[in-house]
Amino acid sequence: MSASEKPALRADAARNRTKILAAARRLYEESGEAGPEQVARAAGVGVGTLYRHFPNREALAAAVYEDELEQVAVAASELLRTHPPVEALRLWMDRFARRFDMKRAMGDAVWSLVRGGTVTADRSRARLAEATQVLVEAGIESGELRTDIRGEDIVVALVGICVTCPDASQREQASRLMDLLLAGLIAPSRVFRL
């Protein structure tokens, strides 16, 4: 049975799954570790409930990783509903950086998923590039962004910023670099000239 053919979860099961993922995310952010028993306790569910959703530690880590990736991707369209394209893009850049922090907090769990082939950089980047392209196309359509921009290039630039500014003490510098990146994406007709 493929993922698209899986039966929908009952409402209570879906709520439990959401609580488990949120608890695991919090634990990874706080300590870099999210053992099943610890996550179940933090989520307020039994260990058996956790194992029904996630049969092992790797499955739980993969679900947290995938859920975070999907939340960042979906945020692009959500931001466009409430903000002009350039503002939405800049806010999305901040959301991307928070995802990168989460990925870093998961540390060994992510490396284990990469080594096992569960997570691939190509697939993750492709999903993020697809989301970024939604923002880019809205910005081009509004005349705010250059027409030669590609979502995948923005993702690579953001990865570079996040890798070179990994510490909390470098958040301000990372933000300035994202501002510079955005400035380079603005359509020439929108740039103020002296």
Rank of each mutant, 00 (worst) to 15 (best):
V47Y: 08
G48Q: 08
T49N: 03
T49G: 03
R52S: 09
H53K: 09
H53V: 07
F54V: 06
P55F: 05
R57L: 03
E58W: 07
A59M: 09
A59N: 12
A61P: 00
A62Y: 10
A63L: 04
A63C: 07
Q71A: 15
V72S: 01
A73D: 00
A73T: 12
A75Q: 08
A75R: 02
A76Y: 02
S77C: 06
S77H: 13
L79M: 12
L80T: 03
R81H: 11
H83G: 06
H83S: 12
V86H: 13
E87T: 14
A88C: 08
L89N: 08
L91C: 06
W92K: 06
M93K: 01
M93D: 07
M93A: 14
R95C: 13
R95Q: 15
R95F: 06
F96M: 02
A97F: 10
A97V: 13
F100K: 05
M102F: 09
M102G: 10
K103I: 14
R104E: 10
R104T: 14
D108C: 04
A109F: 08
A109Q: 05
V110S: 00
V110R: 02
W111C: 01
V114P: 04
G116N: 10
G117S: 01
T118Q: 05
A121S: 13
R127M: 05
T132Q: 11
Q133C: 04
L135G: 00
L135K: 10
L135T: 00
E137M: 14
A138V: 01
G139P: 04
I140Q: 14
E141Y: 13
E141S: 14
L145G: 02
I149Q: 11
I149G: 07
I149P: 06
G151W: 04
G151V: 04
D153R: 14
V155K: 05
V155L: 08
